[in-house]
Each structure stands twice: as C-alpha cells, then as structure tokens.
Amino acid sequence: MATLRHDGEESPAPVATALHVTTPRRRWRRWLLNAVLYAGLVIVAVFCLMPFYFMLSGSLMDRGEMFRIPPRFWPEKLIFENYRAIFQQFSFLTYLRNSIIVSVAQTLGVLFFCSLAGYVFAKRRFPGRNALFIFVLATSMMPNGQTTIIPFYLLMVKFNWIDTFWPLIVPWWAPPLSIFLMRQYIAAGIPDDLIDAATVDGSGLFGTYWRIVLPLSVPGLVVIGVIQFIAIWNDFLYGLLVLKSEEMRTVTVALTELSRRTQASTLYGPLFAGIVMATLPTIILFFIFQRRLTQGILSGAIRG
C-alpha cells in the first residue's frame, strides 16, 4: 500500500519492493542498503561453499595439474582416476566400513539408553529422581572429555581396548544432553493415560517402554540419531587416540594420517577424492532431515 502513496510534488513511480518508499532519497538509501546486504550475504555464502568447490575440483584433477604454478581452479579435463586410486591404492572401503560400524553401533546404543533413561526421568516417580536428573544435567556442563584424553587413553590400554572400536562406542552411549532431550520429548509427547493404561494391564516398566514409549518416540529418536551419527562420523580426536593400526582406522583418522605422510603431496588427488566421499554422507543426511535437525539442535542448545 505504502508504495502506491503519492505525496503531491515529485512523486516517485511505485516500485515493486516490500519496502515503504516515500521520497526518492529514502528509496535510494533503501536500495543501497539492500545492495550492501545481498552483496555481503553472497560473499559469506561463497566463503562457506568455496572449500566444497575446491575439494571437488581437486579430486577431478591429475597430479601435475594440482601443483601447477599459478594454481588452476578447475581441471582442464575431468579425470576420475583419483576415485579409483583411493579404493585401490588405499583401503578406503575398509575405512568406510570402520566408520559405519562405529557410527551405527554408537548411535543405536545412544538411542536405546537415552530413551530408556529419558522415559524413566519423564514418567516414573522414585526417590531421588530430581536430584539424579540435575546431576545428569550438571555433568553436561563439565569440561571433562578433552582435558582427560591422556588418562582416558591409559584406561583404554588397561582395558586392552586399544586398536578396537569399543573406546569409540561404549563410553559415549549415554550423553547427558541426549538424555535431557529424550526426557523433554517423552514428557511432552506421550500422554500419561497411555502409560497408566499399560501399567493397569500388568505391563512392567520395561514392557511399557518397549511397547508404548519406544514406538511413540520415533520422531524424537530420528533427530537425536541423526545428530549423533553426524557427530561420530566426524569425530577425530578419540579415533586418533586409540586406533593404531591402519586397517582399524575410521575415515577421518585415515585421511588425516595420509595427509601427514612425508610424501603426502604426491597423493593429494586420491586424498581429495576421499575427502569428497567422507563429506558427502553427513551432507546428504543434513539435507534429508534439515528442518527437524535444526529444530532439534535448537531445543537442545538453548537449555544446554
């Protein structure tokens, strides 16, 4: 409506923007503001996407082209040799398999233990419930993990867990924030009447969990599962710490250690092909679950 308003003197032609345009000067300022805004956003977007462009471009170049001076930004001729090399010269399939085993085993454990604990904290009454729940939340604020890498490593040596997947799976099965999220989800999403009815029918705690709570929590579980899967897939520090032999390495550890070899520059082509394939799964997951994922992160992070 405002764009159609004429004020007598030098009335500007109506412009098709959502902005309130009154005088030419104001319109000019709005236009400039918009131009600066969109230019800035495009620059930021380019900054965000540029590494993906380079990893793709690098993975399709041959070795000579990658180290040409001055550098080339896109291969003269696309070659797919690097994608063959990463599987044939290096056991990339093994690394992929390792990453999948670790990610799936950890995620399934997280889903089971966190939904179980979340259900008990949300719907069951027992002595000390609130105090215990506050304790769970408090541990999520402790700066524990990363400052204890050395004793964690020594503990894994003691357990004889070095060079196995266990250190990347078991210790991470009950993250406090996921317990919190599941508690919120079950408290709000599953009516008490349903659980009461099952209890009256003689269903025990675990039976109710398995038959009522678990099926009804699937949407919440999907969000937590995807977030968890992405986090483990990208985990590096603990993999580096405990996976010593080459055939046990996960994708992130294997690629990083390849890049640190003394002759690394000779294998940048296959390396970039590996990087593309290591990055794709999480991006695909993100696009599939984008809306629910961002909502899930928000509900967890604001309180955490």
């Binding site: 930021v44 977007a45 965000c48 996407l49 590494p51 993906f52 380079f54 990893m55 690098g58 990658m66 992405i230 897939w233 990208n234 590096f236 994708v251 992130t252 690629l255 990083t256 890049s259 940048y268 390396l271 970039f272 990087i275 290591a278 990055t279 999480t282 991006i283 997951l285 993100f286 961002t294």
Partner: peptide
C-alpha cells in the same frame, strides 16, 4: 548454506585448507 559446514568434519576439510 551457512549451516552446511557444521555437518562436515573440520579435520578432513583442514586437509583442503593446507592446499
């Protein structure tokens, strides 16, 4: 676009950064 980097592994993208 702004969120895509969050789901990638910083250590793997770090290899691209070296180049």
């Amino acid at each position: 676009i702004l969120f895509i980097p969050v789901v990638t592994s910083l250590v793997v993208v770090g290899i691209v950064w070296r180049l």
